[in-house]
């Protein structure tokens, strides 16, 4: 079967790629474009590790077909702190305030859930700048963490909300 030639706009850059129509956005990001900040956990929409934004809406990249998001604005975790990605010297790079809060509040252990958590946090704070604890927890309802425990993550988001 034939690959389709498509252009994906990811974090402001256009990528021209050939993809099979059954490839998910998650597969294309990770395996084809090597943007491995976006994780793959369950592959079935349950865990949130693969969360990205399409036109500023948080979605599961594991359930999104790459061919369907041509012409849309795709944002991945790499897009939140572009300088940090380009500049490997962590001292000098500027993180997004949500990332900074996750680091400062100890909301990261193994880090596997973190990109998804942060993309969900961003969607929450974009729409609810001063969330209550209940709203934070509801905003994270689609993201699972196996190690940090959710309290520190909730603290980190409350901390980020104050800064933004």
């Amino acid at each position: 079967m034939k690959k389709e030639l498509i252009t994906l706009n990811i974090n402001g850059d256009d990528y021209e790629i050939a993809v099979y129509p059954w490839r998910t956005l998650n597969e294309v990001l990770r395996d084809q474009l090597h943007l491995t900040g976006t994780k793959l956990g369950c592959g079935t929409g349950d865990c949130g590790a693969c969360t990205v934004h399409i036109d500023d809406q948080s979605v599961s990249s594991c359930l999104t077909l790459a061919v369907e998001v041509e012409g849309h604005k795709i944002t991945t975790i790499e897009g939140l702190a572009p300088q940090a990605v380009a500049n490997s010297e962590l001292e000098n790079c500027e993180l997004n305030p949500i990332q900074e809060s996750f680091v400062n509040k100890g909301a990261i252990q193994c880090g596997f859930c973190t990109p998804g958590m942060i993309m969900s946090s961003k969607f929450l704070l974009d729409h609810t700048p001063n969330p209550s604890e209940a709203e934070i927890r509801a905003g994270l309802s689609g993201n699972l963490c196996r190690c940090t425990g959710y309290n520190k993550i909730v603290d980190a988001i409350a901390d980020a909300a104050e800064k933004i």
Binding site: G45, D46, G48, T51, Q57, S58, V59, S60, L63, T64, S120, F123, L124, A138, G139, S141, G142, N143
Partner: peptide
């Protein structure tokens, strides 16, 4: 219904 991400899709 479901999660934030699923409701966005």
């Amino acid at each position: 219904t479901a999660t934030v991400q699923i409701r966005n899709m």
